[in-house]
């Protein structure tokens, strides 16, 4: 287990370096955008004097590296600064919306991961059958359609024509948990449809890969039923690639939702990021991007650790 611990520590250290590099890239990418924040905030209506006054108030007259270092000095102590546009702290600006995004991602994941893996096992069992082909074609169709299009289709059938679910996924603190689940069902379903194919096909492929192994043949020869061969003998050895794909898709559920948010008017972090970029609100952009980057780093780390824990050879190296 010490090896696992040292891997975690090493990977977290590397992760911090990655975050630092990302923060530099983001800062200068925002700098490169045409126009500046003062112009974006005041719009066409501003005079030169307004702009100068606003730039002064926001501290935009310092050279770019100085501003970056100022921000970094705050960030390492956990202070991500204040939004340049509204003056609120970045944490209070992003916090509630990130919670919403996490909620939607978890909702989708709780449905998508079991469905995808169970479907993957079933199609591996019934490979080359009609069921296998239909499941493949359907999930591949979903993954090949853009999310907003899937969203519109779901709205058309489940909100406009049947009225089963609301088309707007607006939630607030006063709603009961069940009500929240009902309101966010369509966006969650959209995301489920988008991520299922990838996980299902990886499960199917990695199981089928193993089916040619001698120990599987042995199990069959001794008379183990087909479903048991797959669930008890093949699946445990197929976990590593599946976990990797699951982690990748979980990260996507958090970082790739902006279109779904827009279509269903869900108050998540994606819209905050888009607004912040259009206003050149660097501290908010930075915080959102770092959250996304950290999500990827942590989920990848979790995937690697999961792969080690499910593989006895890695768990007990000689």
């Amino acid at each position: 287990m010490n090896d696992v611990l040292s891997i975690i520590v090493k990977r977290l250290g590397l992760g911090l370096v990655t975050l630092l590099i990302i923060s530099i890239l983001i800062f200068f990418a925002v700098e490169l955008l045409p126009g500046d924040i003062a112009q974006a905030v005041l719009g066409m209506g501003a005079t030169e004097e307004n702009l100068a006054a606003l730039r002064e108030r926001m501290g935009l007259n310092d050279p770019a590296p100085v501003r970056y270092l100022d921000w970094l000095a705050g960030a390492v102590t956990g202070d991500f600064g204040v939004s340049l546009v509204t003056g609120e702290s970045v944490a209070s600006r992003i916090g509630p919306r990130f919670v919403n995004t996490l909620f939607l991602a978890s909702y989708a994941a709780v449905i998508a991961v079991p469905v995808a893996i169970i479907l993957g096992v079933i199609v591996a069992l019934l490979r080359e059958s009609i069921f296998d082909r239909v499941a493949n074609v359907v999930t591949l169709t979903f993954i090949s359609s853009p999310e907003f299009f899937l969203g519109y289709i779901l709205i058309l059938y489940f909100a406009v024509q049947t009225g089963w679910f609301p088309s707007l996924a607006r939630i607030d603190d006063g709603m009961s948990f069940l009500e929240v689940l009902e309101r966010t069902f369509l966006p969650a379903l959209t995301m489920v449809l988008v991520v299922t194919a990838h996980m299902m096909r990886m499960t199917r492929a990695s199981i089928i890969n193993l089916l040619a192994s001698p120990y599987i043949e042995m199990a069959r020869l001794k008379g183990v039923p087909a479903w048991k061969v797959i669930v008890k003998h093949a699946l445990p050895n197929a976990w590593a690639p599946i976990i990797n794909v699951v982690a990748l898709n979980l990260a996507y559920l958090i970082t790739g939702v902006v279109l779904v948010e827009v279509v269903f008017v869900y108050p998540g972090i994606g819209q905050t990021l888009v607004d912040a970029v259009s206003k050149r609100d660097f501290p908010v952009v930075q915080a959102c991007c770092l959250i996304f980057a950290a999500t990827f780093i942590l989920l990848n780390l979790a995937a690697d650790i999961g792969a080690i824990l499910t593989n006895p050879r890695l768990r007990h190296p000689k």
């Binding site: 519109y152 709205i155 909100a159 406009v160 009225g163 609301p166 088309s167 707007l168 607006r170 827009v262 279509v263 269903f264 008017v265 819209q271």
Partner: peptide, 18 residues
């Protein structure tokens, strides 16, 4: 007042009575 930036979301909300 409900912010509905997406034109389709606005029309759908109006049609469904949201």
């Amino acid at each position: 007042l409900v912010v509905l930036n997406d034109p389709n979301a606005r029309q759908t909300a109006l049609v469904t009575g949201d």
